[in-house]
Design a protein around this nucleic acid. Structure first.
Lengths: 227, 227
DNA sequence: GACATGCAAGAGCAGTGCTCTCGTTGTGGC
DNA sequence: GCCACAACGAGAGCACTGCTCTTGCATGTC
């Protein structure tokens, strides 16, 4: 609790406050975040914000990392709540979807089209994998409890080798072809949520989107071996 | 060839030219399209552009409709080139992916996060369905030639009813549960392409993305009955 | 020739990201 | 206890944006 720590804490609080206001703006005004508007809401000059974030992109990056962590945490929490592997998979996907529906602007931030001129820095790599790992954990549990019987078609050629490398990198003991199933399920999950949030389902599936979602996610689970 | 027609033709040409330059800007500068920059490129005042498009959003809408039509045409052309139902499905998905990779900014325009404050008008509804109909055509062909043997799990409850309504609306004679498979495949397709273009595959699948894509799309075809 | 229409240019408004400079204020080392 | 220094906030300013309004010009019609 020395002075340096105090100053750092005040700075951290200010940084957090800027992010919160920015999130509020993102939620109401859409993706074109105005730094000046954020500064106005905080009763400070726009130039003062630059003491905390070097640029608008820097602020966005901070928000993106937070969002990855939030959705990853939601997925992990859901995973911990279910013992049965199949239901764990389904619960994880529902948790991600619920989070996305509650925070559509944050979802767009991380899984929508990249912000113009914005290039995701290396900081975002690790938090981005938490959902995938949660899904892989369900498959791992399925393997451990002997629930996995059928297997998806073996990936062939270079792609098969790449899956083997990813399986190695994962280090979860999940065999390559199931890693492919996990990745495919993750992609399907992202597509289902983005399709729902970005309007691709409009005028086609308007009533029971949750039913459609779960139907797809159970199919994705089956493709990853979890039948 | 009276004067009015001539004027209309000149106007149409000018409109087309603005769209082309706007697309070029979209491709190089990303999604934040600057109307003034487009006007500069055309050697005209920014205010003159407003004679052709009421607003920047109007210009974007025109580009979105064009993009829907272009990707739809690519899908239909691919569909026509393949008689075998399964290969037709795969060929369609590859055609859509190829188009998206060749026109990533256009893909982001229609399947990425919605432009801030932009609400898709009713004009975009019909062209948006062309890819789905192409996929449904492959399933229809599979039904006609007796290629469809296994069926996906029946959609239950409200979602099942909704699928029945959509099947009716499609009018292609494809039964409800297979319509669900088509929709799921379309969603998976969108997710796979967006995941690839928007960077979700980075640091995981970097080599044989085409192999991963086709592996997924064959699984999606199987889920829609095309095994 | 008078009139009307379509078009383009220019000025102008309110907003943006970002930089620079200038005071102030709080902090750490002596 | 004092002083140098770093952190900070405010304000002005630059170049840019979407969009509006007015003006001038060219063309077609009566």
């Amino acid at each position: 609790m020395n002075a340096a720590n105090l100053r750092a804490r005040v700075r951290a609080e200010m940084t957090e406050e800027i992010k919160q206001v920015a999130l509020r703006h993102l939620a109401t005004d859409g993706a074109n975040l105005s730094l000046r508007a954020v500064a106005r809401d905080l009763g400070m000059a726009s130039s003062a914000v630059y003491r905390y974030f070097a640029s608008r992109d820097d602020l966005l990056t901070a928000l993106i990392i937070d969002a990855y962590d939030a959705v990853g945490e939601a997925a992990e929490k859901a995973a911990a709540s279910q013992a049965d592997p199949v239901e764990r998979w389904v619960t994880i996907t529902h948790a991600v979807r619920d989070w996305a529906i509650a925070n559509p602007h944050k979802w767009a931030l991380i899984y929508g089209s990249p912000v113009p001129g914005y290039q995701a820095p290396q900081d975002t790599v690790v938090p981005a994998t938490r959902v995938i790992f949660a899904l892989a954990g369900a498959v791992q549990a399925g393997l451990a409890t002997g629930r996995i019987t059928e297997v998806p078609p073996q990936p062939a050629g270079r792609f098969g080798e790449e899956m083997a490398a990813v399986a190695e990198q994962f280090g979860t003991g999940v065999p390559p072809h199931l890693v492919g199933g996990v990745m495919s399920g993750f992609i399907h999950l992202c597509g289902a949520i983005s399709g729902e949030l970005f309007g691709q389902l409009n005028n086609t599936i308007d009533e029971d989107r949750e039913g459609f979602f779960e139907w797809q996610m159970r199919a994705a689970a089956a493709f990853a071996g979890l039948a």
